[in-house]
């Protein structure tokens, strides 16, 4: 009986979901799960109140080798936030779609050193992002290549 209830919820939600999904914003191409070139994490980008945000949803090494506990944001400049779990941490914030496959005005956070950088994202193709974090001027920055991840196709 419970399964039928769940099924009806999913069907209802699914109908609503698919009927809305055909009219997606051009900027929504950013939405999805992405992997940086170092393959140490997977970042899910979603849209909240019209802006794009990315959170860490998977870590290759989720356990801190020193504490033997799940990794936290130990380098956060605010001492009181050093125990925020790294899994779920929003490292991309406040991106606004500017058109022509570019999202700007956002920031990227590097948990390895606790620094927040200005950031611009360019869609190289549907499944590849050029993400440039920089300090003030784009010259003082570095570009990484992120690849889109999708659900495994059933064989």
């Amino acid at each position: 009986m419970k399964k039928f209830k769940i099924l009806s919820i999913i069907l209802g939600g699914l109908f609503l979901f698919t009927s809305m999904s055909y009219k997606t914003d051009e900027g929504d191409k950013l939405i999805g799960v992405w992997e940086p070139s170092n393959k140490k994490a997977k970042i899910k980008i979603d849209k909240i109140s019209g802006k794009y945000y990315g959170k860490i949803v998977w870590l290759r090494e989720p356990i801190d080798p020193v504490t033997k506990k799940p990794k936290t944001d130990k380098n956060n400049p605010d001492e009181s936030l050093k125990n925020v779990p790294l899994k779920g941490f929003r490292m991309l914030k406040d991106f606004v779609y500017k058109g022509d496959g570019e999202w700007a005005d956002g920031t990227i956070y590097d948990p390895q050193n606790g620094s927040t950088y200005n950031c611009v994202i360019k869609l190289r193709d549907d499944n590849t992002l050029d993400i440039r974090g920089y300090i003030g001027l784009k010259t003082f920055g570095r570009t990484d290549v992120w690849k889109r991840l999708v659900m495994k196709k059933k064989k």
Partner: peptide, 21 residues
Amino acid sequence: QEEEEEDYSMYDDLEYADESS
């Protein structure tokens, strides 16, 4: 669209949409 195909339940069981970097 492809980004709607994500299975958020198992992030360690995803594959590249085209190829790995």
